[in-house]
Design a protein around this nucleic acid. Structure first.
Lengths: 106, 106
DNA sequence: CAGTATCCTTGTTGATACTG
DNA sequence: CAGTATCAACAAGGATACTG
């Protein structure tokens, strides 16, 4: 039984830098279901305000967790979708969900 | 392929309520290696200050993630160790570490 | 629609000194 | 040793109104 959790120091911190912010887990969960536009996220991530949503999307894009794609060439509307790096966060969220489900039956 | 991540809403948030605070992941990682006393945690979780460590330990104890056990009956020194609920957080940390390791080779 | 700009409130953490 | 007390600093998030 190997008790080493981090193969090297700071790996957990890297993930927490992304997931530790409010709303981020919900944004990723929702984008995993399908790519979404700004206003769709505003609706699916209830209660988030546009300033915060913008900040999250910018950070996630900088970190290459999501990418912003133009819906069609003659439009200025964009759509956000998970990258591979982003969808690789899902196992973490799944483990969180498992834990929450196990210990909070209410 | 099932796209549902949370079996019910709020499960991820429950885990994030615990792990989302600074230092918490490190405390859990260190207590997993072995139970520790306050001053040992102060040393192993470098840079944490006693006020914050106290707050973390109290929260984790309230949430039944750790328990405080008296080292011997005639002493006032205590030791903190993970409960089952606490060690069940480790798979989350492990997934975080895997992700960080995969995407931050530096 | 897709954000940006301002301002404000609150929560979180740190520094430091102190106590039983 | 195992914390507690006090104060300061800062970051994060919310409310709201506005723009191209």
């Amino acid at each position: 039984m190997n008790k080493v959790i981090e193969s090297k120091n700071g790996c957990i911190a890297k993930a927490m830098n992304i997931l530790g912010n409010k709303w981020t887990a919900l944004i990723i969960r929702d984008l995993y279901l399908s790519p979404k536009r700004f206003c769709e996220l505003e609706r699916s991530v209830t209660k988030i305000n546009p300033r915060t949503l913008t900040k999250r999307l910018n950070l996630l894009e900088e970190e290459n967790i999501i990418k912003k794609v133009r819906i069609n060439s003659d439009s200025l509307t964009y759509c956000y979708e998970l990258t591979k790096k982003g969808s690789d966060l899902l196992p973490i969220l799944k483990k969180m969900s498992d834990w929450g489900d196990k210990y909070f039956k209410d």
